[in-house]
């Protein structure tokens, strides 16, 4: 029973919150630029409108093009099942999976997205796929080393156990290794979710677009699924960051449904704060040249690596967490 409740809470929280996070980031950017900006719920309206519209499908494309949106969407949601939104709703071994599986599930979606970019025969699609291939291969070592280090600190590669461990230590962010991991994960989020130093989600300029270039041919419900998938992926990575390195759930004395609701509210608050932080990073940086992205990737890799070294060479093992 708890298994089903877990899945329902996971899916509902992620599906309902993901577009909101995009709206908050946009709003925060607009406010800082003294604009009104679109309402925070704009993405919900957009998605609703898109799925009601008809679709135009390129006559060059094959079934890959039509399958890709569903694969992207369902892989993003399946990955979301592996990243608990709140450790209170995690019964032991809810969904068997760990961060290596999460990375692989995202890779499935990305594989189809890159293939779909090539499927229409358009130059833009190929360009987007090609750049995505580069960025993803640069980001992957950082993600793995970063999460590996966090996993080693907590003694498991399973995300719910990692989160439970981090939560039991109180405030992980007071420790140097975790601070390094936080920065590394933040730059990984920027790379993985097509944020400004790497990719500009608001532009359709052929010189700069990466993610949007792959979606250029999509319309109607297919586009909605692709955009929704991207939003969910972004929220999953943000959940990873806030629940792993800024854990909460230290609620004593309240049990049952009330605790879960309270925990989810705290989770939402953390996500909103992180969204504002991401908006701030976006405001304060300019988009990198494509071939400067390796520097960002190298930075996040080195931060993760330093965290590893800090933990294993200077920290001397599990003791330092007392």
């Amino acid at each position: 029973m708890s298994y089903i409740i877990y899945i329902i809470i996971q899916i509902l929280t992620i599906v309902l919150t993901a577009p909101l996070v995009n709206g908050i980031i946009k709003k925060a950017k607009a406010v800082s630029q003294k604009r009104t900006g679109p309402p925070v719920f704009q993405m919900y309206y957009d998605l609703y409108k898109l799925i009601r519209k008809g679709t135009v499908v390129s006559d060059v494309s094959s079934w890959i093009y039509k399958a890709a949106p569903y694969v992207v969407f369902s892989t993003a949601l399946a990955a979301a099942l592996l990243v608990p939104v709140s450790t209170l709703v995690t019964p032991a071994n809810s969904i068997p999976g760990d961060f290596i599986l999460m990375v692989s599930v995202f890779a499935l979606g990305r594989f189809f997205m890159m293939a779909a970019g090539l499927d229409t025969g358009s130059t833009f699609g190929g360009m987007g796929s090609s750049r995505e291939a580069m960025i993803s291969s640069l980001a992957e070592p950082s993600i793995l080393v970063c999460l590996f280090t966090a996993g080693l600190i907590s003694g498991s590669t399973s995300l719910d156990r990692m989160m439970t461990f981090m939560q039991s230590t109180g405030t992980p962010l007071t420790h140097p290794a975790t601070v390094l991991l936080f920065l590394a994960l933040l730059s990984i989020i920027m790379m993985e979710t097509a944020r400004i130093p790497v990719d500009d989600p608001a532009t359709h300029l052929e010189l700069t677009m990466v993610h949007e270039a792959m979606l250029l041919e999509y319309s109607g419900r297919h586009l909605a699924l692709m955009e929704y998938g991207a939003a969910i992926k972004q929220l999953v990575f943000m959940t990873l960051l806030v629940n792993l390195l800024v854990p909460h759930d230290q609620i004593i004395g309240i049990a049952g449904a009330g605790a879960v609701v309270l925990s989810l509210l705290i989770y939402l608050l953390k996500v909103i704060l992180l969204a504002v932080l991401i908006a701030l990073v976006e405001i304060n940086t300019v988009k990198f040249r494509l071939f400067s992205i390796p520097n960002l990737a190298a930075l996040s890799f080195i931060l993760s690596f330093l965290a590893f070294l800090q933990y294993f060479l200077m920290g001397g093992g599990h003791v330092w967490f007392v």
Binding site: I95, L101, S154, S156, R161, F165
Partner: peptide, 8 residues
């Protein structure tokens, strides 16, 4: 020893 990891 601490905790387990499973995938399915």
């Amino acid at each position: 020893d601490l905790t387990g990891t499973a995938i399915s």
